[in-house]
Write a protein that binds this DNA or RNA. Structure first.
Lengths: 195, 195
DNA sequence: ACCCTCCCGTGTACGGCGTACACTAACCGT
DNA sequence: ACGGTTAGTGTACGCCGTACACGGGAGGGT
């Protein structure tokens, strides 16, 4: 194996490196999904024996971590001249592309049941509540998606600190409430019926 | 194997069922982490041969999906008498517990690099921007955690629809901005210095 | 010119994984 | 009594991550 260059060209296409490995891993991940990347397949793509990779990374986890780190490296820096909301918005849009994009496909990492069957019952309840609160047919699902994204993301990033979860949830609900047409803020008469 | 009951007691402790399998899987997951649950280990815990599980579930993914679905089943129903914010809050708090709790440990499913090294650079930029926007030393990290949770969650739940991501992000920023002490809303003079 | 050392990639091997497939022992309604 | 159905048994295959011992070639000190 690895016999293509024979002996001339001491370091050109041949010769591994962290960078070459990461590049190949990202490419393989983009094509087949990151979860299909195995040390053996990756090694084969590099025309090398699997154990060669271990010269450059402690284990598969370390390699995968490096792939993720690489992907988030080229998240755009914020432009300090812009208003803060715009800076944050740019940062996060860019981060979302990196995370959900072809190279990582974050969604594929976790049990798919999270996103469909299990979520249905929740969604039923939630959409009813939001509808009664005054969200229209177009806004209610978006609002729900927003709330669920926050919740799933928070659970994934770390369980600790209920208070932090509450903080963000309240800010989010504030923002959603402010987007409601008019109506009085939080009273309990809007519970049933549709005028 | 499975020789403990021998022949009497046609169906007591012995005899598999979807429920018994899910129970054992959840228990095993709570103890060692869901990612360590394998068909073989699960079968062993049930004192049965691995292939027996396939009478009840198409494959491992289906089984894991069912575990997740089961965990989300006992998310509390909202109390229709409460204000809508309270209903949503309860729903999501409960959901977060189910997702991040012992049985699932959602965070362990995805590459850990997401949460520490890769995120550091982002966090540096973001905390600076938030600090300059007027968030205090206590609020800025919470605000950032909220924003990142939303972004990660959205990326995990599905890549599609930029517009949906924008919708939620704007609501969230609205809520965060409203929590700012006083100051004028979005101008660009607050960029440097600390009065 | 020599050897020695170090580095990098090669092989081999092991234990664990998911699961396809063929089988058997017990149970059932007739 | 008996054929069919069902639940669990074994065996086997191909994949996985990786521990470990090895060889061969490049580079430097003498």
């Amino acid at each position: 194996m690895a016999g293509s260059t024979d002996k001339r060209e001491p370091d050109r296409g041949a010769g591994l490196s962290r960078e070459r490995i990461l590049e190949a891993a990202a490419q393989l991940g983009a094509r087949d999904g990151l979860e299909k990347v195995s040390m053996r397949r990756l090694a084969q793509a590099l025309d090398v024996w699997p154990m060669a990779l271990y010269r450059y990374f402690d284990d598969k986890d370390a390699l995968l971590d490096a792939v993720v780190a690489r992907a988030t490296d080229d998240v755009a820096r914020p432009d300090p001249a812009a208003p803060w909301r715009e800076q944050i918005r740019g940062l996060l849009s860019s981060a979302r592309e990196a995370l959900g994009g072809d190279a990582l496909r974050l969604g594929a990492q976790l049990p798919r049941a999270l996103l469909t069957p299990g979520a249905v019952r929740l969604a039923d309840d939630a959409l009813r509540v939001l509808g009664e609160a005054g969200f229209g047919a177009r806004e209610a699902p978006r609002a729900w998606r927003t709330l669920l994204s926050y919740t799933v993301g928070f659970a994934a990033v770390g369980t600790e600190r209920d208070a932090d979860f509450e903080y963000g949830l309240q800010r989010l609900l504030d923002g959603l409430e402010a987007s409601l047409p008019a109506r009085s803020s939080g009273r309990r008469e809007a519970v049933r019926g549709r005028p």
